[in-house]
Each structure stands twice: as structure tokens, then as C-alpha cells.
Design a protein around this nucleic acid. Structure first.
Lengths: 159, 159
DNA sequence: TTTATACAGGATTAATTAGTCTTGTATGTA
DNA sequence: TACATACAAGACTAATTAATCCTGTATAAA
């Protein structure tokens, strides 16, 4: 999340590209891509590994199953797996699955109505290209890459 | 805000750089910069002009006064004015005033702990430069520029 | 076939953010 | 001085997002 009304104290601001739910979803799928399991992985294992509230993650996984990013196996020895190869799952697909698709018409940052290339909002010329970069980043990164880098990072941290 | 949990329906996702309160604050200050008033402008006038809930804006203005971006004049004929020249008020100052300052340590997009140039999160090399561009954009744009462009836009729309 | 296990899913609660209400206080003007 | 006006401020309500609870259903193994 970004922020808070903060009518006089001082929390913190950060840019938000997606919801907490989507963040958890991305983390969970990175975990799956990372360990390349040959059998289903329990949601509880993932939740523990990444410190995600178990029940909440279970809820999010239901969505991921419905959106066919994940397949679930029920019953004893059950768990979840990626529905397709890690290199074929991109971050924006995860985000869209959880948060819903991006808006039809791009929104103005300033919040003034009617913002387009023709009638731009006062920040349009600076914001539009940055927004494109973000969308590009999210649509180019796939789980295989991300998992690889997580593993690399671990090596760095433990050396 | 960005999104929603959306456990199966389909709202919309958008990148969030700051809270709704900060957005209203920016709009209100643009209004002041735009009309360059020689006397105080009533909060109700601004609220009406930009369709901001009056009471809510009044609350936000209190913060802006405390943070010395705005000076308020009470009583009859009262209202608010920019505390300094429009060219000396930058968007990030408004955002920081309302949402609080940015975090000491930049956060990882993915939400995995420990993210820096040395131990980067898997999206770090792509996200870090984009984030810099955003911070740069917000710290370079001042109210005078924005107000000018709003006026230009109006001309475009009514021609 | 019984049982333990693991996902499915609706209902509920908690936390945060957004917005409203009501009263107080300062101030210009009649 | 009286009064209307406009910001100040705290308490309260509403909406959204995050998280939890509890029961159901599928399934592998004893």
C-alpha cells in the first residue's frame, strides 16, 4: 500500500503496483518456481516459508486455481503446482488474476478527469512513459527468471 | 488505490503513487496556483470546483497549514492561500506533507525482505530505476508548471 | 471403510482509509 | 457589541482491504 490519511503523524509512503493479495500470490508462485517440485506443495509450507498468513494465502490460491495459474490436488499428499511452465507465467498475469485487469482507459495521476494524449493532465507527459515502463516490466518478467534470481540472491547472502 | 482482493470478480487495477488525501491536496493547491488570488480562497470554493468532499478537504487543509504549505485566514472573508510562491512548491512536498515522508529504506516491490543493490530482490534491477524516475518526476514538478498546463489544457478542450 | 489430511468456500472480524458531523474559535462587518 | 462567516478539531460513520474462522468435500493410506 502507499500511505494513510495521516492527519498529523508520520507513517510511510510507498508506491503501490498491486494489492497485498497479489504480492502474496507472486511470492507463492516464485516459491513453486524455485523448488521445482515433482509433487504437490502444501499451501501451509509456502505460507510458512514466506511468512504469509495461511488462511489468507489459501483464499488467494483459490483464485489462482480458478484463473488457471495453479492446479490444486486435494486430500492427503495434496497441495498445489504451477499450471504451466514457470517461463510461461508472467507477473502481470498473476496480478491481473488477483487484482483484476487493468482499466480500459488509463487514469490520470493527478485525478483530474479527462486525461489523454490530446487533453493531457498536467503530469501526463512525464507519467505516461513511466507507466508504460512499469507495465512493460510486469509483462516481461516471468517466474523462471524471478526464481533464478532469488536463488542467486540466496547464494550472495550466504557467502 | 490500486486494487482489491477480488476473490473472483473483476474491479480494476491502477498504480498508486499516493493516497486519495494527497491527491485532493494536490488538486486544491493547483487550483490556488491557477487562479493566483489576491485574497483568501474559501475551501468550499475549491471543494466545489474539483468535486472534493468539503469536510474531507477541510481536514486535509488543516494538515497543509500545519506543514506550512498553506496559510489560512479565519473568519469572514477568510480562506486559504499558498504559503509561498507556486514555483517553490513541489508535488513531492505536498505528498510528503499529507502521506508522511518516504521510507528510510527503499522497499522491495516483491515484498521479499532485504532488498538492496547488493542483495537485490528479483525485480530490483528493473524496478529501482523506474522508482527513481517517479521520485524525480514528483520532486521536479512544481505548482507553477502544473497550473500553467491545466490552463493550457482548458484552452485545448474549449476550442 | 475408516481416518487423517489438504484444498474449497462462505461468513465473520480486524485494520486501514475515506468521508461526515458537530462544536469550538477567530475575525470582519453591520 | 452582536452576528454571520470561515477555519480548527475531535468524534464518529462508511467503505475497502486484509485476515481469520469454521464447516464441507475430496482423496490417499492405514
Amino acid at each position: 500500500m502507499v500511505s494513510s490519511n495521516n492527519t498529523n503523524n508520520t507513517p510511510e509512503l510507498n508506491f503501490m503496483l498491486y494489492s497485498k493479495s497479489a504480492e502474496y500470490a507472486i511470492q507463492a508462485l516464485i516459491y513453486l518456481a524455485e523448488i521445482k517440485p515433482d509433487k504437490p506443495v502444501m499451501i501451509s509450507e509456502i505460507a510458512e516459508a514466506y511468512n504469509i498468513p495461511y488462511q489468507f494465502l489459501a483464499k488467494i490460491v483459490q483464485t489462482l486455481v480458478k484463473q488457471r495459474l495453479v492446479v490444486a490436488t486435494r486430500g492427503r499428499n495434496g497441495g498445489i503446482n504451477l499450471a504451466r511452465e514457470a517461463k510461461d507465467i508472467f507477473i502481470n498475469q498473476i496480478i491481473n488474476a488477483v487484482d483484476g485487469p487493468p482499466p480500459e482507459k488509463e487514469q490520470c495521476v493527478i485525478g483530474l478527469d479527462e486525461c489523454s494524449d490530446v487533453t493531457p493532465c498536467p503530469l501526463h507527459h512525464k507519467w505516461a512513459p513511466i507507466r508504460s515502463q512499469i507495465r512493460e516490466m510486469l509483462s516481461e518478467e516471468h517466474l523462471d527468471d524471478l526464481a533464478y534470481r532469488v536463488i542467486e540472491k540466496r547464494k550472495l547472502m550466504h557467502s
